[in-house]
Design a protein around this nucleic acid. Sequence first.
DNA 1: CTTTTGACCTGACAGC
DNA 2: TGCTGTCAGGTCAAAA
Length: 271
Amino acid sequence: MPELPEVETTCRGIEPHLVNQRIDRVVVRDARLRWRVPKALATELPGQRIRAVARRAKYLLLTADTGTVILHLGMSGRLRVLDATEPPAKHDHIDIVLTNGRCLRLRDPRRFGAVLWTQGAPAEHKLLANLGPEPLEAGFSGEYLHRITRGRKRAVRDVLLDSSVVAGVGNIYANEALFGAGIRPTRAAGSLSAAECERLVRAVRATLKRAIRAGGTTFRDYRRSDGQPGYFQLSLKVYGRDGERCRTCRAPIRLQRLGQRSTFYCRRCQR
DNA sequence: CTTTTGACCTGACAGC
DNA sequence: TGCTGTCAGGTCAAAA
């Protein structure tokens, strides 16, 4: 469900409600997420203050006094800040209850999400240690993409989804960025010229920025932390539009299976 | 080393 | 209405 723009939107939405607040208790109704939710969460956090809320790739990092909560929304996760007295619904697995009576509540029907606790530097945590550069930061450049794709036969779409290459790009935005750059998702990554890599990097950046500005994409059931939908789905050029006409050239958008997942492209605009 | 595949889950939706 | 099959925004671990 949530890709980088959705996680960023969530991060910005919850941050003002959490920073400098003190944690009263942590309620774990179901610990069976992707990895079992550690008991340390409920024993360590009460009494601590949340110092910062940040995002790295699709992970949210809640910095407390003695450690950091690492939170991933998986495919179906959603975070909201509401009154702690609000009765939990089905799939509302975890509450971080604040002393001001509010709480951060995680709902995750598919339980592909994760909530972990680390006392060390988050960047050195096993899950974060091998992440590539943030797509909106300088480390993700055309020169970088060109260099690391030399000799690679993988489809360029799959390279964009590889979090060790670039962090936080999912299937929707990979497809949208490839349309923006005029490159077919199925192209071998190693076949891209330096100019194409530069175009692709610019397209990834532009697509993500516009999606963040629109509050993310509500394709199925994503919601912002305040319950509002995102609006970027109105701007999608190819994703989910198979059979419909290309907004640029009117040719029908193609759906193709690439690996296990769908990819969408315009045969005329993307080469 | 690179690349592909299977696995983890529930819910929404299409088609019968 | 209800059954069955398919698909889904992620990503790790194991296999090829």
